[in-house]
Design a protein around this nucleic acid. Structure first.
Length: 553
RNA sequence: GCGCCUGUAGCUCAGCUGGAUAGAGCGCCGGACUUCGAAUCCGUAGGUCGCAGGUUCGAAUCCUGCCAGGCGCGCCA
């Protein structure tokens, strides 16, 4: 049984084809009007066609409506033309309720689809340097990337979640050196701590750990060896901490990809060779340059410095070549917005590697502006002044934290005030949604105490669901699959929380106006059936966000 | 100087890619618990959609120019 929206969509497609056979590349958009006087669904397609057909929109609307009336689909109560040429559809209420049995029978699968057609997508996110604990900004990237992956999976894509570890290079040396210097301090030596070193307390803690294990042993080693030991130790401990934090944040990666492995395998060298063979590399001032301007970048970029060292960008190209060779149909990179200047060159590289630049989608996540009581909190890894993701999770909880991140477009700046998130936690949008779920669970408990079980196999008399609010809820439930789809195709997780809010607000209102459990057995059965459908959609939607659906709060 | 992002109610943000009277939450004010959970509901107030032009039947949405905030612009990573 196709959903009403689908049927209207198809009907309109046919109607448009019928009015004018000259290859119109317009697909009519079906929307839900803001006010109910405008029907359950509406389309502005007649206005969209005016330019092409050079006819009055109302005339076009009339011929579309004529076509529709000739078909006279059984779900349609009436169709009318309004305003400048809107076509408004009024649906019979019993037609709407056909979605309920579908939701009940599909259960946790309701909302999933096959639009992805098994396409293979990689989502690379977080990828924070293992030089310190994750901070709040990484948390936002983690929430967005993970939710996106869940949404894409729900739409029939095969998804791989990957974390790229920058485990080599100058920063790693500085990390090793930072720990080593702290270690020397613990051993009573006076050291000067350079400005570019990591000053966080966690560095001191790591040095202490090494001291507890090794005593003054490292002091006797040549500095280079000792630093290397410190680096290995610190890197491993920090990365383990990152994994732990992410796991607690309900983010699990399928693969942790090491930058160092690209150096070891010679892939970076091979990548540069490949580009050179294709004429995209030239030498200048003793360095090797990638001709990214040939693909729209504003200037060419160095890949091998005059001292012979490859740049970070060179490794990044090799990394993306590696991704491309793994056969992904689409590659999604989620970056902090401070890296926006790298999009053009990365897309240029992908194209130079013989692929399509459209295969790479870069989602920029704006940095989080962390506040406490309205005052900005300093955030600098180097200076060691930052609030870690773990601290935020401990303070406001995983559910609230993820929800706050996911309720905004990723490219909008985000003020995250810890005091507000904490103090107003009972007014936090996530609880509004979770409360509806808990409330429903409670209703079912009461129902079962009264011996009003819920029989999944038996469909009650749904024509009893005639209240405006019931129709509205049913209609919204029917929208869920489209919301998930649009969220996937636009790569915008925030559509889910906004949908949830609409649905839940409608449900709470309904709950306050009508009793689900009453003396009328048939009506109770029908309403419990509706309630169960709501509960399923709430669970499924929250699950896409990685937010829990508690039975009690 | 150049580039990217943002500018919508007092605050935090949506606005389905050009459609009908621009919407939520928080906050303010006023109501609703002897009845399935009041973390809820119902109602009031609050707007020159940063500014100015342009495109057309129609603009918060598209194009141009300004203004403001954030972030980038290295043979750093």
């Amino acid at each position: 049984m196709a959903l009403i929206r689908n049927q209207i969509q198809e009907l309109l497609n046919d109607a448009v084809k019928c009015i004018d056979s000259t290859n119109l590349d317009i697909t009519p958009e079906v929307e839900i009007p803001a006010v109910k006087e405008h029907g359950h669904y509406a389309t502005a397609v007649a206005m969209a066609l005016t330019k092409k057909l050079r006819k009055n929109p109302r005339l076009i609307a009339e011929s579309i409506v004529n076509y529709i009336e000739k078909q006279s689909p059984d779900y349609l109560q009436k169709v009318e033309i309004a305003g400048p040429g809107f076509i408004n559809f009024f649906i019979k209420s019993e037609a709407f309720s056909t979605v309920l049995p579908e939701i009940i029978s599909k259960g946790s699968l309701y909302g999933t689809s096959e639009i992805g057609g098994g396409q293979y997508i990689q989502v690379e996110f977080v990828s924070a340097n293992p030089t310190g604990p994750l901070h709040i900004g990484h948390g936002r990237g983690a929430a967005v990337g993970d939710a996106l992956a869940r949404i894409l999976e729900a739409c029939g894509y095969r998804v791989q979640r990957e974390y790229y570890i920058n485990d080599t290079g100058k920063q790693m040396e500085i990390l090793g050196s930072s720990v080593y210097l702290r270690y020397l301090e613990i051993n009573g030596e006076k050291v000067t701590f350079p400005d570019d070193h990591y000053k966080g307390d966690y560095i001191v803690d790591l040095a202490k750990e090494i001291f507890d294990e090794k005593g003054d042993e490292l002091k006797k080693l040549p500095a280079g060896e000792a630093i290397s030991y410190c680096y290995e130790y610190a890197y491993k401990r920090i990365l383990d901490g990152i994994k732990e934090d992410l796991s607690q944040f309900r983010v699990e990666f399928d693969r942790w990809f090491s930058e160092k492995s690209l150096h070891r395998s010679g892939e970076i060298k091979k990548t540069i060779e490949f580009l050179k063979d294709n004429g995209y590399i030239y030498e200048s001032e003793g360095a090797l340059w990638f001709k990214s301007t040939a693909f729209g970048d504003e200037k060419d970029r160095v890949v091998v410095r005059s001292n012979g060292a490859t740049t970070y960008f060179a490794a990044d190209i090799a990394y993306h070549w590696n991704k491309l060779k793994r056969g992904f149909d689409t590659i999604i990179d989620i970056w902090g917005a401070d890296h926006h200047g790298y999009v053009a060159r990365m897309k240029a590289a992908v194209e130079a590697l013989g692929s399509s630049r459209d295969k790479l989608h870069v989602i920029l996540v704006q940095l989080v502006n962390l506040l406490r009581g309205g005052r900005p909190v300093a955030m600098s890894t180097r200076a060691g002044e930052f609030v870690t993701l773990r601290e935020v999770i401990d303070e406001v909880g995983v559910d609230a934290c993820r929800y706050i991140f996911l309720t905004r477009r990723s490219d909008s700046h985000l003020d995250f005030d810890l005091e507000v998130a904490k103090e107003q936690s009972s007014n936090n949008p996530v609880y509004y949604v979770q409360y509806a779920h808990a409330r429903l669970c409670s209703v079912f408990e009461v129902a079962s105490e009264k011996g009003l079980g819920f029989d999944k196999g038996k469909t009650p008399n749904l024509s009893l669901l005639t209240q405006d609010k019931e129709i509205k809820i049913i209609q919204l439930l029917g929208e869920f699959p489209y919301v998930v789809e649009s969220s996937a195709t636009h790569l915008e997780p925030h559509r889910i929380p906004y949908y949830l809010h609409d649905l839940v607000s409608e449900f709470h209102s309904y709950y306050n106006h009508h009793r689900i459990i009453s003396d009328d057995q048939d009506l109770t059965a029908a309403r419990l059936y509706l309630a169960e459908a709501v509960r399923i959609v709430l669970r499924n939607a929250l699950n896409l966000l990685g937010v829990s659906a508690p039975e009690k709060m």
